[in-house]
Amino acid sequence: MKSLVSTLSLDQAPIGRTLTIAATCDDGVVARRLTSLGWRVGVQIQVTQRASGGARIIDLNGSRVAVSRNLARALPVEVAA
């Protein structure tokens, strides 16, 4: 059976669903910072919470990382349909 996968930006991702990181961001400095926190293509994450002000809290390798809403818009993730 063919599984359906849709790509959306992190800020659109539903809370609590398992997501797969589809790409990193273009900004070199931010990309390096994300990489050092464990953000790389193929890693599975979850959005645990939408914080006040729009930041997304994600579960990345068991730790919690807050990502501003603007940055979340630029980060593509995949979600199994």
Binding site: V30, L34, S63, R64, V65, A66, V67, N70, L71
Partner: peptide
């Protein structure tokens, strides 16, 4: 303005 990426 650096976008917020912070470990909690």
């Amino acid at each position: 303005a650096e976008p917020l990426v912070i470990d909690l």
